[in-house]
Design a protein around this nucleic acid. Structure first.
Lengths: 201, 201
DNA sequence: ACCTGAACACCGTTCAAGT
DNA sequence: ACCTGAACACCGTTCAAGT
């Protein structure tokens, strides 16, 4: 046994990542097991621990990929409209992404698989970057606001949009479909933006 | 062995529930195991399956308890102030509860332990009731709004507050402490309420 | 050096067997 | 009827042993 050398370590690493992502998308995070992945790529469980520290490490990289895809998704939203309109579109785009890539989006907020381990800085940086488009629109909306105020507004609204997606798509809320969720998001964004702008110079 | 009859089924049931809650509070949901609970109450694992269908069933009842406690916590917020002030206080109370009972609050939004099983109606009803105080304040704020509009506003704001707690307390956001989170919540509530009220008659 | 696969510790759940 | 505890299936992780 052993010593096949059919693939480089880097190749195996991306094979693992791809197989894991496919399982995640199709069956959800709960169904993602080392033995599944190993089976899928034609290696044994031990091989996976050659290229990833453990399951938590693997999942962290799956999360990173998802954050990257989400960032791309948000970057495709036109930013030259009115600020309020852009914020609406960004929020709808977020809801859209969460809905279309439900299992991957859901994974982002599952903290059970990685208990109390410190999230690396490069991962936190990706999250920060995700807030940039929203912050940019708030800078356009209220140019005289301080950087701190802008950042807080972006955090408040973006977290708010996330919260609606969170409660709605997870079925905690009694909302019918995605259109219904979108209507709630629209109410949040419009009211918030109007209220925020009316207070700032 | 067996046939001790030291406790009735109902007694065992509440012993299980209490022991589980203690473990949950002290060590978090990830550390809650059947064998832990059995050890704690001086019975064996099999006994737990006499009084609960399975772990998911037990956790559901832990969630229900937490929702009840949260409802009590929110009911203690004075409701005779201005609507905006009351909504602020309610939001702060929610943040407060999430912070003080972090492990129990966190459990409410962990869907990994109970995969795709239908949430019973009595549980959904508890969630609906949790939105009542917020809806009530929106009724006071904009008396001419339709019931549907009021409900949507309550859902938008309350989900928003939850989203901030969610991202902040879980460390996804780069916020320093609870005071910082509260400031973000204040921004959300104030802006939203002002924007909402300015649009409705 | 690379990879295997058996082994380990630890889960939730079941159920024949005792009293 | 109540409760036990051994057994089962299934996890993530490790590591001595092969090539």
């Amino acid at each position: 046994m052993a010593r096949r050398s059919e693939h480089t370590q880097d190749e195996i690493r991306s094979m693992v990542l791809n197989a894991a992502e496919t399982i995640l998308i199709e069956d959800g995070l709960a169904k993602l097991k080392v033995r599944n992945i190993a089976m899928e790529i034609g290696y044994t469980v031990g091989s996976i621990y050659m290229v990833f520290d453990n399951m938590a490490d693997l999942i962290l990289h799956l999360k990173a990929r998802t954050l990257d895809d989400m960032a791309l998704h948000l970057q495709q939203v036109p930013s030259n409209n009115t600020a309020q309109c852009c914020l609406l579109d960004l929020s709808k785009a977020y809801l859209n992404f969460a809905n279309q890539h439900f299992n991957r989006w859901n994974m982002l907020f599952d903290h059970t698989k990685t208990p109390e381990s410190v999230t690396p800085d490069w991962y936190k940086h990706k999250i920060t970057q995700l807030f940039r488009p929203i912050e940019y629109q708030f800078e356009r909306l209220t140019p005289n606001a301080s950087a701190e105020q802008t950042q807080r507004a972006a955090q408040a609204l973006w977290s708010g949009v996330h919260g609606i997606c969170c409660l709605s798509l997870s079925g905690s809320l009694d909302v019918v479909g995605v259109r219904d969720v979108e209507a709630t998001v629209v109410v949040l964004v419009n009211s918030f933006v109007r209220g925020w702008a009316s207070d700032l110079p």
